[in-house]
Amino acid sequence: MAKGKVGQAVGSLGDYLKEQRVSARLSLRQLAAQAGVSNPYLSQIERGLRKPSAEVLQQIAKALRISAEQLYIRAGILSPDDGVGRSVELAILGDAGLTERQKQSLLDVYASFLALNAAEDVAKAQETAPKSAEIDPEDLTTEGKSANGQV
């Protein structure tokens, strides 16, 4: 992921978290306590200075009583366009038995499998597509001419 895109995703996440916290009528300290994170860390997330892990996002979502999936999308962990594999990705992210590094590795492997399968599907489609009428180059030179070369 490009560095600029990560910054935008985190900034967008921070703004969204602040909106949700304010609408839930929670102070920064109250939300931090409910989510089990420090007040300064939560403040840095809201200001777009830190990118929280999926586990921290899940804790914040639970404290705010909102969808963790929305936070994952805003943080750039999930893509809103990836409807097919979302349940697999969410299962990985929600598994408390995995470390953050293991979760990211599994997500990377899963994404690479999807990309490989998509590339194979494109190749198969190109192989089975009807070929356009192929013209023999010699046909171009003799087309419309008689045996002696005159039209």
Rank of each mutant, 00 (worst) to 15 (best):
D81C: 03
L90F: 04
P52H: 05
G36V: 03
A2M: 14
D81M: 09
L28C: 03
D139H: 09
L28Y: 00
A75P: 00
L114M: 11
D136F: 07
E143P: 02
S146Y: 08
N117C: 12
S12L: 11
A119Q: 15
K124P: 00
P40A: 07
R101Y: 06
Q44P: 00
Y16M: 10
S53F: 13
G149M: 05
A2Y: 13
D139L: 11
R74I: 02
Y41P: 05
L78S: 01
A118D: 15
R47C: 06
S53Y: 09
Q102I: 02
R101C: 04
L71Y: 04
R101V: 10
Q102L: 04
P80T: 11
S38N: 12
A2N: 15
K62A: 11
A125Q: 13
G7E: 12
S132F: 04
K124S: 12
G94K: 05
G14H: 05
E55W: 12
L57V: 04
D139I: 07
K18W: 07
S43Y: 01
L106R: 05
L107V: 07
A9R: 11
R86N: 04
K5G: 03
E46D: 07
V151A: 10
G4N: 12
V6Q: 04
L64Q: 01
E143S: 13
K145M: 12
S27G: 11
G85M: 11
S112Y: 05
A68H: 01
L93I: 04
G14W: 02
P130G: 00
Q104W: 04
A147K: 13
Q58T: 06
E46P: 02
N39I: 02
I77S: 02
D121K: 14
Q8I: 15
K145D: 08
V56F: 08
Q150T: 06
G4H: 14
E69C: 07
A91G: 14
T142I: 11
G94V: 02
Q150G: 08
A32I: 03
V109S: 10
A118T: 13
N148M: 06
D136G: 06
A24T: 03
Q8V: 15
A63K: 04
G14L: 05
A24G: 01
G149E: 04
R25A: 10
F113S: 07
M1P: 03
K131H: 11
